[in-house]
């Protein structure tokens, strides 16, 4: 155990952990809301996130982000944020329409819905990983070679954004980390308030609590479910944007591990509970980074899973309990 390194770098490790945690939390939102409403593990949500990372990457490439700076760069980044949110939202909605709605209509067993989700996850990831072939069928591989090349390896925007490191109280932290944490928390607050106060949000909560009664009271279940996927998709897009700012590279299969982590965060906080997702994400992110500082980075994922198992054993409903329906949501 490397205690010396750990204690010397505790503040910056913590900030980094919180930044990861914030990204997990934003993805976790999609899992937790869909679970709250449908009791379905939306296994393919990780791919919704992955498509967002590529939307961000392609937008930055297309708009010439590598040569831009100052206001122009900020504008390009904002455009890439919008693109990421848009693509993630579209993928989430398509997913709902194609892979889930037919099953929900038939009231299929949950295991079957999960299988469909797993299948959809494979399809989405592989389509991205085979995008060079797909472009080839369409005869576009030359025009799009910058975008469809390197289909199965890392794609990077490294060097586009050079973020300064800030000195806060003698501790050097990455400004990106701070940005990630603040914007993630801000988005979580927005969604939380939306679900609590807006009419649509109330519909979501009502459906989560009692679908039958909700639909009798005039809440359109299909629309509510769509709305849930839409919000989850938008937030996954934000997460994708922030992730790309921080990590700078993506790949067709990047979603899987992040998805598992985000789902872990959702369960950790209490699945179905929005604030739980934030807390779960942050706790998971910090625990992971601390754990890898102490034990070595190769143990990072093991720490995450062990944490999950331990928390479930002592608090089977997660840190904050499960409740999308209850006022806590």
């Amino acid at each position: 155990m490397n205690f010396e390194f750990f204690f010397n770098n505790l503040p910056s490790l913590t900030v980094s952990g919180l930044a990861f945690g914030a990204i997990y939390a934003l993805i976790a939102l999609g899992y937790t809301m869909v679970y709250g409403v449908l009791q379905l593990i939306n296994f393919a949500h990780s791919e919704v996130f992955m498509y967002g990372t590529f939307a961000m990457l392609w937008t930055v490439m297309a708009l010439g982000g590598a040569d831009a700076d100052g206001v122009e760069l900020v504008a390009i980044l904002l455009a890439s944020l919008v693109a990421a949110m848009a693509l993630s939202a579209i993928v989430a909605l398509v997913l709902e329409r194609v892979a889930y709605r037919p099953l929900i209509k038939r009231n299929a067993p949950r295991l079957i819905a999960l299988i469909s989700a797993i299948g959809a996850s494979f399809v989405l990831a592989e389509l991205m990983g085979l995008r060079d072939r797909v472009a080839g069928w369409l005869g576009l591989e030359d025009d799009l070679s910058d975008y469809v090349g390197k289909a199965r390896i890392n794609n990077s925007i490294a060097g586009v954004v050079e973020a300064p490191r800030w000195d806060i109280g003698g501790v050097s932290v990455s400004s990106i980390d701070i940005l990630v944490i603040l914007s993630a928390v801000a988005m979580m607050v927005v969604v939380d308030q939306f679900v609590r106060r807006s009419k649509l949000g109330k519909g979501i909560r009502a459906t989560a609590q009692d679908p039958e009664t909700a639909s009798m009271m005039g809440v359109n279940p299909t629309r509510t479910i769509q709305m849930t996927f839409l919000i989850g998709g938008l937030m996954a897009g934000v997460a994708a944007f922030l992730y790309m700012l921080k990590i700078e590279t993506t790949k067709f299969d990047v979603g899987f591990l992040l998805g598992v982590k985000a789902f872990t965060a959702a369960v950790l906080g209490g699945i179905g509970n929005l604030r739980g997702a934030l807390l779960g994400g942050l706790v998971l992110g910090v625990a992971e980074i601390w754990g890898s500082a102490l034990l070595g980075t190769e143990w990072r994922h093991v720490v995450a899973f062990v944490l999950l198992v331990v928390i479930l054993l002592f608090r089977p409903t997660g840190l904050l309990g499960e409740s999308l329906g209850k006022a806590r949501a």
């Binding site: 892979a99 037919p102 067993p109 299988i115 399809v123 085979l130 072939r133």
Partner: peptide, 20 residues
């Protein structure tokens, strides 16, 4: 071979939707 995971995923979705 390159498409096997893709086909496999499609099969799972189609199966779940049509023959659960």
């Amino acid at each position: 071979d390159d498409f096997r995971v893709l086909v496999f995923g499609l099969a799972l979705v189609v199966l779940a939707v049509l023959r659960p």
